[in-house]
Structure formats: C-alpha cells, structure tokens
C-alpha cells in the first residue's frame, strides 16, 4: 500500500516535516548556511517541495510550483521518500540503482544528509499527525 493516498497528503506530511526541521536551529542553521535551493520532485503521487536557503538568512519551504530556480533537484517515488525518512533507504544503493535521481551539484546535497538525520526519529509521528489532520479536514 502506498504511503500517501494523494498529493494533498504528501504535501501535508512534507510541509509538517520541513516545518519541524526549520524550527530546529541545530538542523536549519546548517541548511541555511548552505545557501542551496533544493527541489524534491515526487511521483506516485506527484508532488513538489522546494527548500530555499538562497539568501543565507532564512529557510523558505513551499509545495507545488514555485518561481525560484532550484540549484539541485532530487527525483524519487513518494514511497522512496517515505522510506528514506524512516531511515530504511540505503542511500548509496538508491543512488546507484537510480531510485533516487539527482540533477545539479549532487555532492552539496549529499553533504547535508548528516544534517537532517536528527529528523529521522521524528518522522513517523509527523507522518501520522499530518495524515490524521488531512483525514479530519476531509470529513
């Protein structure tokens, strides 16, 4: 069974996740210092999330189409993203096998993997909370 029923659910989970990362100075300060603009492009269901740290001062998180040009784009199935945040994806294998596709200066993004690791243990709660919220809105 897919981790996300539709784009709304995917967006809700990723917005809450990245909002949590943004509110954690331990993680956000290093992401902001990178000055990167990273766009995650998901499929099944489709979704786009952009993390914009380009001004080196703030971290802007947005879903859907945005005008800011990404420096790095990462493409993957939404299920792969879900497994990644659960800490179940072997990133080297996923990259070698093409489950995760990257466009742009990939080493810069890979260097940030350790920075976001503290979010892994938070993810399951975030996932369930966001899904419940979406479900209650739909009722």
């Amino acid at each position: 069974m897919p981790a996300f029923k539709n784009t709304d659910e995917l967006n809700a989970v990723m917005e809450l996740l990245w909002g949590t990362i943004k509110d954690d100075p331990g993680m956000s300060s290093k992401l902001i210092a990178s000055k990167l603009v990273v766009r995650f492009v998901y499929r099944e269901p489709e979704g786009r999330l952009t993390v914009d740290c380009s001004d080196g001062k703030t971290m802007l998180v947005s879903t859907g189409d945005t005008s800011n040009k990404p420096i790095i784009e990462m493409f993957m199935k939404a299920d792969v993203a879900h497994e990644f945040w659960l800490g179940k994806v072997n990133v080297p294998v996923a990259i070698l096998s093409g489950k995760i596709v990257s466009k742009g200066p990939t080493p810069k993004a890979l260097a940030l993997l350790p920075v976001i690791k503290p979010a892994f243990p938070m993810y399951l709660d975030i996932y369930e909370t966001a899904k419940k919220k979406i479900a209650s809105c739909a009722e």
Binding site: I72, E73, F75, I100, S102, G104, P105, T106
Partner: peptide
Amino acid sequence: EEYQGLNN
C-alpha cells in the same frame, strides 16, 4: 553544468 547529477 546543466547535466551534473546522478542518473539524470
């Protein structure tokens, strides 16, 4: 530079 990346 547009083609930097992995599997893209």
